[in-house]
């Protein structure tokens, strides 16, 4: 039996197709989030990859910012619950998840059964989110994908404030004007995101093991900085962006179980 989880975020849509609640058959990711046809595209892609028809899916759960507007779904759940579920399935040792997405940052604590114990979301500010990195990448004209190598290439990060994206933007410009090297500024930017998110994590209480998910998790510069800030090692998976969708697919399977 197939269940599908779809995570429609602010900038991307992700799908995970699950068989019998424990086997991942296919996944998909399209760079188009809420307010676009990204959700449908993403679902069609996953179905095509798996050679499975829409009618064969027993239950669909949507999550993410666009969860309310996906008409194909049978139900919807918050992305925090789904993230916790997905990460627990992938790695049952994890107790803290730090999820930095395009719009916001979240810290989730779960117990040994994978049940959400506590969570915190950032306030309404781009600082400490993927958006902050996007703004900085545009100013520096360096693709985000290069942030990791650049940040790792220096031992002298510049000091960039973590309180406000707008202030940080002018700080970056004046750092550059004062002759700071681009890699130092990039390392400073990664530190800035990390220090903001670390503050959030400490408020929830960090329990090991710690897993990082969301689009920003791909950036090793931020991961390194966060490990230093929190003094813990941080796990990461190539598939971390898919955890919300995976959790949704798992919940979808449970829903059917409950109904039967």
């Amino acid at each position: 039996m197939y269940t599908l989880g779809i995570d429609i975020g602010s900038t991307t849509s992700k799908c995970v197709l699950l068989e019998d609640g424990n086997k991942i058959i296919a996944t998909s990711l399209v760079v188009a989030g809420i307010g676009t046809n990204g959700g449908i595209k993403c679902m069609n892609e996953v179905l095509e990859n798996a050679k499975v028809k829409r009618e064969e899916i027993a239950y669909i759960i949507a999550t993410g910012y666009g969860r309310k507007n996906f008409s194909e779904a049978n139900g919807e759940l918050s992305e925090l619950s789904c993230h916790a579920k997905g990460v627990h399935f992938a790695d049952p040792e994890v107790r803290t998840i730090i999820d930095i997405g395009g719009q916001d940052a979240k810290v989730i604590r779960l117990n040994s059964k994978g049940i959400l114990e506590n969570f915190l979301m950032n306030d309404k500010c781009a600082a400490g989110t993927g958006r902050f990195l996007d703004v900085m990448a545009t100013i520096l004209q360096v693709p985000i994908a290069e942030f990791e190598t650049q940040a790792r290439s220096t031992k002298e990060p510049a000091k960039i404030s973590s309180t406000c994206t707008v202030f940080a933007e002018s700080e970056v410009i004046s750092q550059l004007a004062n002759g700071s090297k681009v890699e130092c500024v990039i390392a400073g930017i990664c530190n800035s995101v990390a220090s903001r998110v670390a503050g959030l994590a400490k408020r929830v209480g960090v329990k090991e093991e710690v897993f990082m998910s969301g689009g920003v998790a791909r950036n090793g510069g931020v991961r390194d900085a966060l490990e230093r800030e929190l003094q813990v090692s941080i796990k990461y998976s190539e598939h971390s962006q898919l955890m919300g969708a995976l959790g949704a697919a798992l919940f979808a399977y449970e829903k059917i179980g409950a109904a039967e």
């Binding site: 910012y65 759940l77 918050s78 992305e79 925090l80 619950s81 916001d104 049940i115 959400l116 114990e117 969570f119 979301m121 309404k124």
Partner: peptide, 16 residues
Amino acid sequence: VNYEQVRTAVQTFSEM
């Protein structure tokens, strides 16, 4: 004007 974050937080809390 935007309650989406509150919505997600409250929904997660109630799911929890």
